[in-house]
Simulated scan of single mutants.
Amino acid sequence: MGEYRAIKTIKLDEVFQFCDHYDSEPLSLSSSALKVVTDFTRRQPQVIMKDVDVDHALYMMINGHVRSKLVIDHDDTFLGVITAKDLTGRKVLATAQKKSLGRADLTVEDMMTKRFELQAMPYRLVESAKIGDVVETLQDIGQQHVLLVDDKGALRGMISASDIARALHMPVNILEKARSFKSIFEIIHDREELDA
């Protein structure tokens, strides 16, 4: 790291207030949805290879301060999405037991939400939508994030409930929707763990 240098810091003992002017207006549910889009034309998507083991994947997410990554194979083909929640708790143990594997043998591919299970929105519709419309969509589909596709059918971006919550400085609660009896059990069990 010889080409970089530490920037000199100063003490804050005589600093008591914020500057007088903010560059942007505060966001609200009525603000443009584009304000909370992670646009892959401007920022490279967070990706992870399908064969990374679950412990290493979780380590990468925690140290990268991200909650989800797009899963790809060695040809850069999009396969699905993995979240930090997918890599912890009951789902990992249940998958290990089902596949007769130890936790250390599980990979991202074993735990990810597959592409065909995900929902997406056309980017062109997001351009005229409000943040509140996106929150309503996330609640409707019962997912923490939604992918965006361009007119050519390529992944253009993503919007997550956590990004919206950070931007609005308020909680955004999205309740997962169960798609099977097993999903109902997992959702109830996860909520009981949160309440404990």
Rank of each mutant, 00 (worst) to 15 (best):
G2L: 09
A6C: 01
I7D: 02
K11T: 15
L12A: 11
E14F: 14
E14D: 15
E14W: 13
V15I: 09
V15T: 02
F18S: 06
S30A: 15
S30G: 15
R42L: 11
R43K: 15
V47R: 10
D53C: 01
H56C: 00
L58N: 02
I62R: 13
S68Y: 03
K69A: 11
L70W: 00
L70C: 01
D76F: 03
D76V: 01
D76C: 01
F78R: 08
L79I: 03
K85D: 14
K91Y: 12
A94I: 05
K98S: 12
S100L: 13
A104Q: 15
V108W: 12
M112G: 08
K114Q: 07
F116N: 01
L118F: 00
M121K: 05
R124D: 07
V126Q: 02
G132V: 04
Q139L: 00
D140F: 04
Q143C: 08
Q143R: 14
Q144N: 05
L147R: 05
L148Q: 11
D150N: 15
K152N: 10
R156N: 10
I159V: 11
A161Q: 04
H169V: 07
H169W: 04
H169F: 06
H169Y: 09
V172Y: 06
L175Q: 08
K177Q: 15
A178S: 09
S180L: 05
I184Y: 02
F185I: 14
I187A: 12
R191S: 10
E192G: 04
